[in-house]
Amino acid sequence: MTFWILAPLMVAAALGLLFVRKAVHAAMLLAVVMISLAVLYALLEAPFLFAVQIIVYTGAILMLFLFVLMLVGVDASDSVVETIRGQRLMATVVGLLFGAVLVIGIGQVGLGTAVGLEEANAGGNVDRLADILFSRYVFAFEATSALLITAALGAMVLAHRERVSAKPTQASLAAQRLRDYAEHGKPLGPLPAPGVYARHNAVDTPALLPDGTIAESSVSRVLAARGTVRSAPALADDIHEVRRQLGDDVSMPATAGKDGAAANTTEDVTTPDGSHTDGEDSK
């Protein structure tokens, strides 16, 4: 019974893997399949594998996937356009054929009644597995340990980046900053902070420059990519509403003075080209 509930779920999740556009969603769908598989393992009298499936796959490997996804960029998603001509069609056709043939082939095989693992699992599944693993399969086991060590070393070697230039000192960083300012007009100080309005101090609210335009560099690139950045003109829409609530006589005597002060810095603030990104900053 459990199987018949889980099987459609798994197939659906697996099919979702083919169609979702965001990698994170794919990872979540894969997690569904993995956990369902763990349950199936339990049904199939494999408690050890059940535990390992949950711990290793959903716990470790999927986390690793997510970790790498975050490193690579959550916004990285497939475009719908297929670049290789005929690849998608051919893949579908061949895949369907392959699946059909497999299913037909399996259908030809009469499995008969299952023997069941009561006898084999006598004394505990883990104990029995350990018996086999450390007797008959001990060489293979040792070989996998070597494989894992090699993989760990390999991962370290691959992830390691050789430093080809001297590590920048604080002085050189400061000098570079000034040079950037002189040559490209990059601001000397930190990037403008988002959300300077009284009502919106959230990170998804871009700062406004004195002339009313948006300071794009004040919002995280990721938020911009997600399209969750609020638009400044939209924010300006309810200003009149607010004014009306506060009363028309509200004057802004400080504005003039602010204007004058801001006028001095206008050039400095409007010139940034926005290329000063988070990614580079993090380096």
């Binding site: 290789i84 690849q87 051919m90 893949a91 061949v94 895949g95 054929l97 392959f98 043939v101 497999l102 037909i104 082939g105 030809q108």
Partner: peptide, 19 residues
């Protein structure tokens, strides 16, 4: 992915032959 497609096609042929 093209190579993988040929691989799968090969596997299909093998399975067909077995069948």
């Amino acid at each position: 992915r093209s190579y993988a497609l040929s691989l799968l096609a090969g596997a299909l042929v093998v399975v067909l032959a077995l069948l």
